[in-house]
Nucleic acid binder design. Structure first.
Lengths: 214, 214
DNA sequence: GCCGAAGCTGAGCGAGCGCTTAGGGCACTC
DNA sequence: GAGTGCCCTAAGCGCTCGCTCAGCTTCGGC
């Protein structure tokens, strides 16, 4: 749960698994370009230029431009699933686990907004097989949150009318942070995380979080 | 508040203001194409083809491809603002007006998902001046929702910690419907609207909607 | 029956796209 | 110190993009 991969820019860099170094620099450049302009509006020349390389260098490390998006999307979704899974499977009440899941998931979307934007909004730019793989990961994210809500219902902590609908709304609320969050805005990622955890607990019928999160 | 512009496909067609007929057909074709593939991945040949015309016909009615997006975006945002304004300024308690605003806004995002997708997610593809104009409309949408929440607070109906944060979360929740809603899914636009109105009332501290909406 | 305006098409221009290829520089092996 | 493999670049191929333009058809006015 430590965010040791964070840089001075506030942007997460969990790209240590991408080697060699040139491939990682290209991938980070692609994340920035895709987040700014979108996948289709980004050129391979732009990506290579941001990484300080010639356009041809990209094709030594990646077969196509789409493979770059695929790698970014898979690593990002694995990280998102890891965040939700960690919160869902820790010890504690459903109330505490839901607050933890929402606040850490929102922190990731706000702090790593550049990455999260690509991960959450460029899914449709992938081809059919790549998209199917990513959609499977998204379903696992959904299942983790739904599990917490079902636990809370069974324990009598929560009061919800529609489990699947509430699950969708909770995830929806978190994901949309990547769309609107601005580093120059009035809140830090931590503050948005705490605020959203409170709002979500209200949505599931918990009156007030009993000092669950720091 | 009547949705008389709705077709059999469940898609709203408030494009009556676009004349002549050929210009309207091109605009509707552009909405569909932009929603499916995104602005940058859509070609002018695709738009013209969907409208049953040659590529050159597009440039008789629109100066550039971007002007098409601009027109779509402005009309869509004006419609969104109209929906929120109508709900905000009707008679009734803040609770009723907030439930009305959320359910009708969500219905628009779900039922007119094709249009809403373009309106909400292709904003960054506009040039600086066009984007500035649209951003101003968005701020007016924000102000309408914030106004209802402030009314509810003043009347003692609501209990919220952060007015601006809650406003943002409410709009965020509604807007994200355009991303995930599927016509083949388990809910109708009406059902999602009712469900989300309930969730939002919980977010602002209203225990249960007192039969506010039909 | 002729005319001008309006709406549209077929053909195509210049530019920029994703991606390829031939070859250069450099570290390392023996 | 020649050989080998790894990264990387300069140049450019084939293609499709947004957009243009000359000319065709259609139609109302007189």
């Amino acid at each position: 749960m430590s965010t040791a991969e964070e840089t001075a820019g506030g942007e997460m860099q969990p790209w240590a698994e991408v080697t060699p170094d040139a491939a990682r620099r290209l991938l980070i450049a692609a994340v920035e370009a895709f987040a700014e302009r979108g996948y289709h509006a980004t050129t391979t020349r732009d990506i290579a230029g941001r990484a300080g390389m010639s356009p041809a260098a990209l094709y030594i490390h990646y077969k196509t431009k789409e493979e770059l998006l695929h790698r970014i999307s898979r690593i990002g979704h694995e990280r998102a699933l890891d965040i939700l899974r960690t919160a869902a499977r820790r010890e504690g009440s459903a109330t505490e686990r839901l607050a933890d899941a929402v606040s850490s998931f929102v922190r990731w979307h706000a702090g790593g907004r550049t990455t999260a934007r690509v991960v959450q909004y460029e899914l449709d730019s992938l081809g059919p097989e790549a998209r199917a793989e990513i959609v499977a990961l998204r379903r696992q994210c959904d299942a983790e949150v739904r599990g917490i809500i079902e636990d809370g219902l069974a324990a009598g902590e929560f009061d919800v009318l529609d489990v699947q609908g509430t699950t969708l709304a909770v995830l929806s609320l978190c994901i949309d942070v990547a769309r609107w969050f601005n580093v120059q805005g009035p809140w830090t990622p931590d503050e948005v995380g705490a605020m959203y955890a409170d709002l979500v607990l209200r949505m599931v019928g918990v009156q007030r979080a009993p000092g669950a999160e720091k």
